[in-house]
């Protein structure tokens, strides 16, 4: 079970607003967060990953408390069991596909299984600059899953891809999430992507819950 309550003041140019969101997710659930640019979607993921600190709230994952403003507890990003796939995939340019996965977990057997899961066995020795957009996305997913994280955070994972590839890799993403059984949160500005892939979907506007979407 993953539960969070996050409050953070955000600024977008001269406009400022409060991100305020509270959710609970069952193990293996796939939550979609829909919202326009600047609605606080990425900040929500960054707060969960520990790259940004909320102004107040609480983040609990299983028996662990990652953040609690009342006690001052704040676990650093490296100690949070998170798989984070940012919008630009953030692959390490100096490492091959296999190197990127082994950096997360040096277990070669696990890396081989992940390469098979994301269908990149033949590209294992290629560097990120030699990969297509879809291959980069799948490498980032495999790397994020390598440590068997408690939660997978996906920041617009399909936005850098063209229409056709987006459909294909969207299906692939859903398959990988179900196969790994990891609890996931995906943010996107595409209603179609969210409703197609996620078990539960919410809409965020100016940092607040604006409604639930049918899935």
């Amino acid at each position: 079970m993953i539960g969070f309550r996050i409050a953070k003041r955000l600024r977008a140019g001269r406009h400022s607003f409060d991100l305020e969101l509270e959710r609970e997710l069952a193990d293996g659930a796939f939550l979609g967060v829909l919202g326009p640019s600047g609605s606080g979607k990425t900040t929500l993921l960054r707060c969960l990953a520990g790259h940004e600190r909320p102004d107040s709230g609480r983040i609990g994952v299983g028996q662990e408390l990652w953040y609690d403003s009342s006690s001052g507890a704040c676990v650093p990003p490296r100690l949070r069991s998170v798989g984070f796939v940012p919008q630009d995939y953030a692959l390490f340019p100096n490492m091959t596909v296999l190197g990127n996965i082994l950096y997360a977990d040096p277990d070669r057997e696990n890396a081989r299984e992940l390469l098979s899961l994301v269908r990149l066995e033949k590209q294992a020795g290629l560097f990120p600059r030699e990969l297509s957009g879809g291959q980069k996305q799948r490498t980032a997913l495999a790397r994020a899953l390598a440590r068997r994280p408690a939660i997978l955070l996906l920041d617009e994972p399909l936005s850098a891809l063209d229409e056709e590839l987006r459909e294909e890799l969207g299906d692939e993403l859903g398959r990988i999430q179900r196969a790994s059984g990891v609890t996931a949160i995906m943010v996107s500005h595409s209603r179609h992507e969210i409703s197609r892939l996620c078990d539960e979907s919410i809409e965020l506007r100016d940092g607040r819950l604006a409604g639930f979407l049918p899935t």
Partner: peptide
């Protein structure tokens, strides 16, 4: 990119290992 540094932290690495690797 700050994103690749943060990606390293999210993969369980500290500042020294992130700097070196």
């Amino acid at each position: 990119s700050r994103n690749i540094v943060e990606a390293s932290y999210s993969l369980g690495k500290g500042r020294v290992e992130t700097a070196l690797r």
